[in-house]
Design a protein around this nucleic acid. Structure first.
Length: 231
DNA sequence: CACCAGGCAAGTA
DNA sequence: TACTTGCATGGT
């Protein structure tokens, strides 16, 4: 179950965030994110899925597995154009090949290729290091920390923004950090909770809140209005 | 056929 | 700082 909420929180907002979570959880059940077999595969998927449909990412990851190069040392040895060809189905493949190479280079240079060593440090310190890697921004860094490293960091993505905006809880001008703080200051610090909450928001976004779709039958349709904070 | 997907960096004003 | 643009494939 959900641990106790943090001390420095706003109870009204806590209740609304938890109500939203419970409605989504009841509708979708446990989504079991991240869909990957290893932490390294999580990180590769996090980079490949940038602004890209997940189905296309699965094709690229299958290609990497078939080629036997889904590991840091093998990826690092691969010529960049060869890597780009292998991940081509995920789109932006020349850009993403460089981004994968940048991360793998960082991992080998700084931690001798060991993800355990990389994650064996304060995760906010690690977050700053990840953000310096070419191709890793805030969302990708947080995906790596939460889903590969099991660190309690809340992920903000386009669906998080869109869903909260449609419920009148955001003006649209908030920064990534503003929205991340909205969740982290008002929810218990919990890896399983952050894991499932983000997965639920993405699933809700895909199912009910895509650009072309209306919000019919959305589990949040009957939910209370704005969360507050920014409106 | 048009539209869009689980971002990010680089360029411009 | 605050926009704008390029990057690209495959499903619906």
């Amino acid at each position: 179950m959900i641990p106790q909420a943090p001390i420095a929180c706003k109870p009204g907002i806590v209740l609304r965030l938890l109500e939203m979570y419970e409605r989504l959880e009841k509708h979708f059940g446990n989504l079991g994110w991240w869909p990957a077999e290893t932490p390294f595969e999580v990180i590769v998927g996090a980079i490949l899925t940038q602004n890209t449909a997940w189905m296309n990412v699965t094709y690229a990851i299958t290609n990497l597995k078939d080629a036997g190069v889904l590991s840091a040392p093998t990826l690092y040895r691969l010529p960049i154009d060869t890597l780009a060809t292998i991940i081509r189905p995920s789109g932006y493949h020349h850009v993403k090949a460089k981004r994968l190479a940048a991360f793998v280079g960082f991992l080998l240079d700084e931690y001798n290729g060991s993800l355990d060593d990389m994650f064996a440090q304060n995760h906010w310190v690690l977050r700053r290091k990840l953000l310096r890697i070419h191709g890793i921004g805030e969302e990708t860094a947080d995906c790596i920390l939460l889903y590969a490293g099991e660190k309690p960091v809340f992920i903000v993505d386009v669906y998080t923004r869109r869903i909260l905006e449609r419920h009148g809880s955001l003006s649209g001008k908030e920064s990534y950090s503003d929205i991340q703080s909205l969740f982290m200051d008002n929810l218990p610090v919990s890896v399983p909770l952050y894991n499932q909450y983000h997965a639920l928001l993405v699933q809700t976004g895909k199912t009910f809140c895509r650009k072309e779709k209306k919000c019919e039958n959305c589990p949040l349709k009957e939910a209370t209005g704005t969360i507050g904070c920014f409106t």
